[in-house]
Design a protein around this nucleic acid. Structure first.
Length: 159
DNA sequence: GCCAACGTTGGC
DNA sequence: GCCAACGTTGGC
């Protein structure tokens, strides 16, 4: 049974379209510098798990589509590269990155990206992590029921 | 080990 | 752009 996750990104930094344009529609999810999110990527995300890609910091943030984990957690060595924007001086001094990334592959862009405003209208989604006030976790779990409902919202039946 | 100060996230 | 909420840092 696959797990389900949601990963946030600012679309001007890296968007779902950027993922679709990536070689093999695969990218490494670099730059996460938060321990809770790291632990999820390191310990919990498994190959074949489904991942919602969420665009944050928009007037109406939205879930753009679905990806899957194709490579489980491994060291994010962008932390060691001084020229990289995700450089982490403390990690570099140790000579070893404590940070972790996974690789994900785009599976499907929603016909209609699912906006946060629509998520909030769904009673069944009221406990979603992403909707809780002040939630800043950039890699977070999604329940199977939530996953299925959101996929339906993203692919409305043709009339 | 507490907690104030700080920097960042992210909805609005 | 504002600012509340959050995670991290560092002085004590």
């Amino acid at each position: 049974m696959p797990g389900y996750w949601l990963m946030k990104t600012e679309p001007d930094v890296f968007s779902f379209d950027d993922l679709l344009k990536s070689k093999g529609k695969v990218t490494c999810w670099e730059g996460v510098r938060n321990y809770q999110a790291r632990n999820i990527m390191r310990d919990e995300m498994k190959k074949g798990d489904k991942v919602f890609v969420y665009h944050s910091r928009l007037a109406d943030p939205c879930i753009m589509g679905v990806a899957e984990v194709v490579q489980e957690g491994y060291a994010d060595n962008t932390a060691l590269d001084k020229k990289n924007k995700y450089y982490d001086e403390r990690a570099a001094k140790k000579g070893e990155s404590p940070w972790v990334m996974v690789d994900i592959k785009a599976l499907q862009k929603f016909d209609k990206p699912v906006p946060r405003s629509l998520l909030k209208e769904q009673k069944a989604l009221k406990d979603m992590v992403v909707l809780s006030k002040g939630s800043r976790l950039s890699v977070q779990p999604v329940r199977e029921t939530e996953y299925k409902l959101i996929c339906e919202l993203g692919k409305p039946k043709k009339v």
